[in-house]
Simulated scan of single mutants.
Amino acid sequence: MRKLKNNELERLNVEEFKEAEKTPLIIVLDNIRSLNNIGSVFRTADAFLIEKIYLCGITATPPHKDIHKTALGATESVAWEYVEDTVSLVEKLKQDGVVTVAIEQAENATMLNDFQIESGKKYAVIFGNEVKGVKQKVVSSVDKVIEIPQYGTKHSLNISVSTGVVVWDLFAKLKTQSKQN
């Protein structure tokens, strides 16, 4: 078995990415401190054709060398927008018919592996600060809360890892659903 070279991977260029049909997922970053984490989220969003990223509160915005270091150009392909207040954004998304979902450990949260996608819906997944998580005001305003099951001694995963886990799971569920319709 031989590893493929980058030019053999048949990836989209930036213009093709912008024109491609997007996965009906939006990522919302609520007060993310680490620029490397932000860049990693952009790269994950690019990999799964995510519709848009909203950067909220203290979350830094491109262009920035530390975001670029991990995004590797994904800030040029993935649509993004800065919105200061996450709760206001959640309310707007809900008015637009988007199902809003905080990724958090909370009472009555649905475990990610048990979460079912509703046909024809678009989802916005909200990831919180590396230390404090998603703000309680945001958790109180969303439609649903999903928790990533964890079985070890630690209480949380890194934000970029959490994004990868959740986006992959929802992407797979959306693709399975679209094949059934």
Rank of each mutant, 00 (worst) to 15 (best):
Met1Phe: 10
Arg2Cys: 07
Leu4Ala: 11
Lys5Gly: 08
Asn6Glu: 09
Leu9Val: 09
Leu9Ala: 11
Glu10Cys: 12
Asn13Trp: 00
Asn13Thr: 07
Leu25Lys: 06
Ile26Met: 09
Leu29Glu: 00
Leu29Arg: 00
Ile32Val: 15
Arg33Ser: 11
Ser34Gly: 08
Asn36Thr: 06
Asn37Ser: 05
Ile38Gln: 04
Ile38Cys: 06
Ile38Pro: 07
Gly39Phe: 02
Phe42Val: 04
Arg43Tyr: 12
Asp46Ile: 02
Asp46Cys: 02
Ala47Trp: 04
Phe48Glu: 12
Phe48Lys: 13
Leu49Tyr: 13
Ile50Met: 11
Ile50Gly: 10
Ile50His: 07
Lys52Val: 10
Ile53Cys: 07
Leu55Asn: 04
Cys56Pro: 08
Cys56Gly: 06
Gly57Pro: 12
Thr59Trp: 03
Ala60Leu: 10
His64Met: 03
Lys65Met: 08
Asp66Ala: 04
Asp66Ser: 11
Gly73Gln: 09
Ala74His: 07
Thr75Cys: 09
Glu76Phe: 05
Glu76Ser: 11
Val78Gln: 09
Trp80His: 15
Trp80Leu: 06
Glu81Val: 11
Glu81Ser: 08
Tyr82His: 15
Val83Ile: 15
Asp85Arg: 11
Asp85Gly: 03
Thr86Ala: 14
Thr86Arg: 10
Val87Glu: 11
Leu89His: 03
Val90Asp: 02
Val90Cys: 03
Lys94Met: 14
Asp96Thr: 01
Val98Tyr: 05
Val98Thr: 14
Thr100Leu: 07
Val101Ile: 15
Val101Tyr: 00
Glu104Tyr: 03
Gln105Val: 14
Gln105His: 02
Gln105Met: 08
Ala106Gln: 01
Glu107Met: 03
Asn108Cys: 00
Ala109Val: 00
Ala109Gln: 00
Ala109Arg: 01
Thr110Tyr: 00
Thr110His: 00
Leu112Ala: 06
Leu112Phe: 10
Phe115Cys: 03
Ala124Met: 07
Phe127Trp: 05
Phe127Glu: 03
Phe127Leu: 15
Asn129Arg: 09
Asn129Leu: 10
Glu130Cys: 08
Gly133Lys: 01
Lys135Met: 09
Lys135Arg: 15
Lys135Ala: 13
Gln136Trp: 01
Lys137Arg: 13
Lys137His: 06
Lys137Trp: 00
Val139Phe: 01
Ser141Cys: 14
Ser141Met: 12
Val145Ala: 01
Glu147Leu: 02
Ile148Tyr: 03
Pro149Phe: 05
Tyr151Phe: 15
Gly152Asp: 05
Thr153Asn: 10
Thr153Trp: 07
Lys154Glu: 09
His155Asn: 13
His155Glu: 14
Leu157Cys: 00
Asn158Ser: 13
Ile159Thr: 15
Ile159Leu: 15
Ser160Glu: 14
Thr163Leu: 02
Val165His: 02
Phe171Gln: 05
Leu174Ile: 15
Gln180Asn: 13
Gln180Gly: 06
Asn181Ile: 15
Asn181Leu: 14
Asn181Pro: 02
